[in-house]
Amino acid sequence: MVSFFQMLDEVNERIYKPNGLTLTAAREEAQNSDYGGGVFRLNARSVRLRVAKITPRKAGQFVVFWEKDESGKNAAYSPDTATDLLVVHAFADTKGCSGQFVFPKDALVNQNILKTAATPGKMATRVYPSWDTPVSKQAMSTQAWQLPYFINLNDNDHSRIQRLIGLYTG
């Protein structure tokens, strides 16, 4: 498993620094360390990073994001406690692929991932990178809303990197 600081160092050197983005205030989130969990600031935006886990029997990858509520129970983030962006880094075991989902807070609210007065939110979900081919209708629907926020990082195609920077800078 890739740790938060390993992932952050790699992305900082490959994407952030060369494109003039400044990373500050990085800290690991112990409760989500199994998923490379941590938070940082990128220029003026707050970012929560996770590394998705490949699951052998199901398409897509699994990722968690939760906090402890006031009574010490695991709870979904709310718009007030969520960062500006949720970044999920995905890998493919056999294809040598990697990429990032950069979800803005409003997309997470629209997809009922953040808790609101109307929805309990989610503490975990599956992500479906472009190289995955889900078969269930629900998984295909999930991939359809997720793909506009996904960038495949397998090559250094300038337009892909610029699109990724656009997702970060919003």
Rank of each mutant, 00 (worst) to 15 (best):
G96I: 01
G96R: 11
G96F: 09
G96W: 04
C97Q: 14
C97S: 14
S98I: 07
G99H: 01
G99S: 03
G99L: 01
Q100H: 12
Q100D: 12
Q100V: 10
F101Q: 02
F101P: 00
F101T: 00
V102N: 05
V102E: 04
V102K: 07
F103W: 02
F103M: 04
F103Y: 07
F103H: 02
F103I: 02
P104Y: 03
P104H: 02
P104G: 05
K105C: 07
K105R: 15
K105M: 09
K105H: 05
D106K: 14
D106P: 08
D106M: 11
D106S: 14
D106V: 13
D106T: 14
A107W: 03
A107T: 08
A107S: 12
L108I: 11
L108F: 04
L108C: 07
V109Q: 05
V109W: 03
V109F: 09
V109T: 10
N110F: 04
Q111S: 10
Q111I: 05
N112I: 06
N112Q: 13
N112K: 15
N112G: 11
N112R: 13
I113T: 01
I113K: 11
I113D: 00
I113F: 15
L114V: 02
L114N: 03
L114M: 05
L114G: 05
K115W: 07
K115Q: 11
T116D: 05
A117C: 02
A117H: 09
A118S: 13
A118T: 09
A118E: 15
T119G: 01
T119A: 14
P120F: 10
P120R: 04
P120D: 09
G121T: 01
G121C: 05
G121R: 05
G121V: 05
K122R: 13
K122Q: 14
K122C: 12
K122S: 07
M123D: 10
M123S: 09
M123C: 06
M123G: 09
A124K: 10
T125H: 09
T125A: 13
T125R: 05
R126T: 12
R126W: 10
R126G: 08
V127Q: 08
V127S: 00
V127F: 03
V127P: 07
Y128N: 10
Y128S: 11
P129Q: 03
P129W: 09
P129T: 00
P129F: 00
S130Y: 03
S130F: 00
S130W: 01
W131A: 06
W131I: 05
W131H: 02
W131F: 03
W131D: 08
W131V: 03
D132T: 12
T133W: 07
P134F: 04
P134K: 01
P134L: 06
P134H: 06
V135R: 12
V135D: 08
V135N: 13
S136C: 05
K137E: 14
K137L: 15
K137N: 14
K137S: 15
K137Q: 14
Q138K: 15
Q138M: 15
Q138R: 15
Q138N: 12
Q138W: 10
A139F: 04
A139M: 09
M140S: 08
S141C: 08
S141F: 03
S141M: 10
T142G: 04
T142P: 05
T142S: 13
T142I: 13
Q143A: 08
A144N: 12
A144F: 07
A144C: 08
W145M: 10
W145C: 08
Q146F: 03
L147K: 06
L147C: 02
L147Y: 07
